[in-house]
């Protein structure tokens, strides 16, 4: 009786795991290098645009300082990416992931524009924490593993510590704002 229960439980676990793996495989987009280049440029440009909005709307020095760093760093990453695709003669291509990023950014920008004062500061920094977590996840699990060109892969790997530093910086600003 006990053995039957364990077998049944194991079978359910195996089926559940298999389904989740298959589901993950179906959900994970398959990107070419020109598509990866497009995602990289779009993802960085979105954060530059959020930062410009923050400089325009916020009076909080911590928020403004963070936003200035985002503009400088993400612009530097874009510059590197553009230099690389130019060197490789690759034309970045729109794809489902870059379009989805732009659509989500559009919605987030509307929400940010509706917030004012401290509410804006909180919304901006909260979004920066969430956005960097999402981008780090995508770079780690999709963009780096799927890059075919060694230089493109190396550029994405170089961007990782920058993104991770931004996440820690955003979390610091978040805890300061909550005080």
């Amino acid at each position: 009786m006990k053995t039957k229960f364990i077998t049944k439980t194991l079978a359910i676990l195996v089926i559940a795991l298999f389904s989740s793996v298959c589901g993950f495989a179906q959900d994970t987009p398959q990107l070419t290098d020109p598509e990866i280049a497009k995602v990289a440029v779009v993802a960085n440009q979105i954060d530059v645009d959020y930062a410009k909005l923050a400089i325009d709307r916020s009076k909080n020095p911590d928020v403004r300082e963070f936003a200035n760093t985002m503009i400088a760093d993400h612009s530097a990453i874009i510059k590197q990416a553009v230099a690389l695709v130019t060197k490789l003669g690759v034309v970045p291509q729109d794809n489902a992931m870059s379009k989805s990023l732009l659509q989500q950014a559009d919605e987030t920008t509307k929400k940010l524009k509706a917030a004012k004062g401290k509410a804006f500061d909180k919304a901006y920094i909260d979004n920066e924490v969430a956005y960097h977590k999402a981008v780090i996840g995508a770079v780690k699990t999709v963009l780096i593993p799927q890059s075919q060109n060694a230089e493109l892969k190396a550029l994405l790997e170089t961007a990782m510590p920058i993104l991770e530093t931004h996440l820690h910086h955003a979390e610091m600003a978040q805890s300061k704002i909550l005080k």
Binding site: A72, D73, A76, I77, K79, Q80, T158, I162
Partner: peptide
């Protein structure tokens, strides 16, 4: 002497 070897400032 500090040397910046990153492409970000």
């Amino acid at each position: 002497e500090w040397v910046n070897k990153d492409f970000v400032p």
